[in-house]
Amino acid sequence: MSDWEPKIVAFLCNWCSYGAADLAGVSRLQYPPNIRVIRIPCTGRMSPKFALSALRNGADGVWVSG
């Protein structure tokens, strides 16, 4: 179990956090590789169904960011 790494599904807004993720990459900043990014057109696109779907399908965490 010691090599277990959390799987986190990140729902990122195209204009905000997705841009921030892009900027972090361009700036060569290091961050934990545990997130699996899903780009959504706007945080308004987010639905509770998404969060539950992610958990049901084996995600350990869900992160929504606008």
Partner: peptide, 9 residues
């Protein structure tokens, strides 16, 4: 398990 945040681009 559920996080929300607000980050500018």
């Amino acid at each position: 398990r559920l996080h929300m945040s607000w980050v500018s681009s």
